[in-house]
């Protein structure tokens, strides 16, 4: 554990809390992509099945349980409790275009052809692109509420901080995992455009609005 890793995890935690609070306080999930949330739930389910086979630490276990539980809680809020506020008309990204290539890639490019390892690889690749339905939704409506922008910023920062963590670990422990690193870089790059808008608009008190 180093400072980048901890900051990354905290940023991830913060993103989820922001999202849940937004939905809960406003009693609405308007502007949030249910498809991205479904992909995240699938990501954490596939990755954290090792909860039962691999003990790392109490921190690790608590975080994994939290990520799985909150991903399903979000889906419950979006598709059941506050279903009437879910903006499904704008949430039209075809997730099969992500799931199919990600599945094939996980079967071909992995460290070991075993059930758990392929599930882990699948989750790493899927996480990298899981935000695309959400970003697509923002570009389709041309705007995002400030709170949604803060959520996206925290979520995007998390993998960026992990990249610094991987650089740190490479030099201090000679540890690196190419699959995680490349997917993490792709994941972060997908947020670049959003980061730019966040710094130039949202932080100056303006609403995130895309040029028409």
């Amino acid at each position: 554990m180093n400072v980048f890793r901890l900051a990354g995890d905290m940023s991830h935690l913060l993103a989820i809390i922001i999202l849940l609070l937004k939905i809960w306080k406003t009693r609405s999930c308007a502007g949030i992509s249910g498809r991205s949330q479904l992909l995240f739930a699938l990501t954490y389910t596939a990755r954290y099945l090792d909860l039962v086979t691999n003990w790392v630490s109490l921190y690790n276990t608590v975080m994994k349980v939290f990520f799985i539980a909150t991903s399903y809680a979000t889906i419950y809020l979006m598709y059941l409790k506050f279903k009437a506020t879910y903006d499904s008309n704008h949430d039209t990204f075809r997730v099969e275009f992500l799931l199919l290539p990600v599945t094939i890639l996980a079967l071909v490019l992995n460290h070991e052809f075993s059930f758990m390892e392929i599930l882990w690889t699948f989750s790493i690749y899927l996480e990298a692109v899981a935000i695309l339905p959400q970003l697509f939704m923002v570009s389709k409506t041309g705007e995002a509420e400030s709170i949604t922008s803060h959520y996206l910023f925290a979520l995007g920062s998390y993998r960026l901080l992990y990249i610094f963590n991987w650089i740190w670990r490479y030099y201090t422990e000679e540890y690196y995992d190419l699959i995680a690193i490349i997917a993490g870089v792709v994941q972060t790059v997908l947020y670049c455009d959003f980061f730019y808008l966040y710094f130039t608009k949202v932080l100056k008190g303006k609403k995130l609005q895309l040029p028409a």
Binding site: H12, N54, S57, N60, Y175, D177, A180
Partner: peptide
């Protein structure tokens, strides 16, 4: 051959 390192990241 080589055992994979333990996955300790989230």
């Amino acid at each position: 051959c080589c055992k994979l390192p333990q996955k300790d990241e989230l």
